[in-house]
């Protein structure tokens, strides 16, 4: 039984110390993934809070069929996607379908020389379909191995590779369209 699995079992029994240990181990991965989807700090924190609440409430349901890391990434991806959907619905109700102007997102961890390029990247990532977006974020931002991405997405390695090819092609097309003078 892995240490992480043991921690989850303790969390299922309401152990706060175990919960803190799990948070220290996974919060950066969860938050960073959430930030890639939400592209703003407040929403990423809200998603992170939701993810850890879900982990706490469903720790007893984890049967060890997948790695803890995979399970937590899966919860994060689903929570982030649901958050984006509900935000879209809410903004439609509030603004009646009008698109609100957003400031370009600047990832805090990006290397200084890549800042402008990363800004352009996040701008187009937003426009990708859900599954392509997830495959791209997990592979190129979280830098997970392809097989792990497939496990998180509950799909095959081949399917992930095809999603990544389509995601890259879409990103290239959109970047060329949005930045024709580069």
């Amino acid at each position: 039984m892995s240490r992480e699995y043991q921690i989850l079992k303790s969390i299922a029994n309401g152990d706060e110390t175990a919960f803190r240990e799990l948070y220290v181990q996974f919060s950066e991965r969860v938050y960073n993934t959430a930030l890639s989807y939400a592209q703003n700090v407040e929403d990423a924190e809200e998603i992170t809070q939701d993810v850890f609440t879900k982990i706490f409430r469903s720790a007893d349901k984890f049967k060890g069929k997948s790695k803890v890391n995979t399970w937590i990434y899966r919860i994060t991806v689903n929570t982030a996607l649901n958050h984006l959907k509900s935000k879209k619905r809410l903004s439609f109700i509030q603004f009646g379908g009008e698109i609100k102007q957003q400031i370009d997102f600047e990832h805090p961890g990006v290397l200084l020389e890549n800042k402008e390029k990363a800004k352009a990247l996040f701008k187009v990532i937003k426009t990708l379909p859900e599954s392509q977006k997830t495959a791209f974020i997990l592979s190129f931002i979280e830098e997970l191995p392809r097989q792990e991405v497939a496990n998180v997405m509950k799909t095959s390695l081949k399917a992930v590779e095809s999603l990544l090819q389509r995601a890259k092609a879409n990103l290239r097309k959109k970047l060329q369209k949005q930045y024709p003078k580069k």
């Binding site: 992170t48 290397l111 390029k117 352009a120 830098e143």
Partner: peptide
């Protein structure tokens, strides 16, 4: 370069 621009970046901390 844009597509690969997050390579080697650090994880954001909450």
């Amino acid at each position: 370069e844009v597509v690969e621009s997050m390579k080697g970046s650090q994880r954001a901390k909450p």
